[in-house]
Amino acid sequence: MDEQAYVYIMASKRNGTIYLGSTDHLARRAWEHREGVVPGFTKTYGCKLLVWYELHGTLETARVREFQMKSWKRAWKLREIEGLNPEWDDLYERIARP
């Protein structure tokens, strides 16, 4: 069975509040953050922009990477975002399926 999982970063705005998470369904999870469906950090701080993501083969490896990155300094996370997405564009439209 082919599994896919992602580590992702949501942001409130460029250089704003960021949230790091992992999921096996990136489009659905990003939509949940955007719509504020689930109470929590991203809803409270308005993290609605999908600004970075990384594909992994399994949810387990994505979660390992997520926990590794959560221990990083903020500057390192910002460097990851700007390496993939220097303009901090919202990547949701690129991954959302109609």
Rank of each mutant, 00 (worst) to 15 (best):
D2S: 12
D2Y: 14
D2G: 11
E3R: 05
Q4E: 13
A5W: 05
Y6V: 09
Y6F: 15
V7T: 15
V7S: 08
Y8L: 01
Y8K: 03
I9S: 02
I9A: 05
M10Y: 07
A11F: 13
S12Q: 12
K13M: 11
K13T: 12
R14D: 06
R14L: 09
N15V: 00
N15D: 15
N15H: 11
G16Q: 05
I18T: 08
I18W: 07
Y19G: 12
G21M: 07
G21H: 06
G21Q: 08
S22H: 13
S22T: 10
T23V: 13
T23Y: 13
T23M: 12
H25Y: 12
H25N: 15
L26W: 06
A27Q: 11
R28Y: 13
R28T: 15
R28I: 09
A30E: 05
W31P: 07
W31Y: 14
E32H: 12
E32L: 10
E32A: 04
E32N: 09
R34H: 09
E35Y: 07
G36I: 00
V37C: 03
V38I: 15
P39F: 04
G40H: 06
F41W: 06
K43T: 08
K43V: 00
T44M: 01
T44H: 06
Y45E: 03
Y45P: 01
Y45H: 15
G46V: 01
C47S: 10
K48Q: 10
L50I: 02
L50A: 06
L50M: 00
L50P: 08
W52Y: 15
W52V: 08
Y53K: 01
E54H: 10
E54M: 04
L55Y: 09
H56D: 07
H56P: 02
G57V: 00
G57K: 06
T58P: 09
T58M: 10
T58L: 09
L59G: 14
E60P: 03
E60G: 07
A62C: 04
A62I: 03
A62M: 07
A62H: 03
A62K: 04
R63K: 15
R63F: 03
V64W: 07
V64C: 05
R65C: 11
R65G: 04
R65L: 07
E66W: 03
E66D: 05
F67S: 07
Q68N: 05
M69F: 14
M69E: 10
M69P: 05
S71Q: 13
S71I: 00
W72I: 00
W72Y: 13
W72A: 10
W72K: 02
W72Q: 08
W72G: 00
K73A: 12
K73Q: 11
K73S: 11
K73W: 07
R74F: 01
A75K: 08
A75L: 06
W76F: 12
K77C: 12
K77D: 08
L78H: 14
R79A: 15
R79Q: 14
E80W: 11
E82Q: 12
G83P: 06
L84T: 06
L84V: 01
P86I: 01
P86C: 01
E87P: 04
E87Q: 15
W88E: 02
D90C: 02
D90R: 05
D90M: 00
L91S: 06
L91C: 00
L91R: 04
Y92K: 02
Y92T: 05
I95S: 04
A96I: 10
A96F: 15
R97H: 13
P98Q: 11
P98I: 07
P98Y: 12
P98N: 07
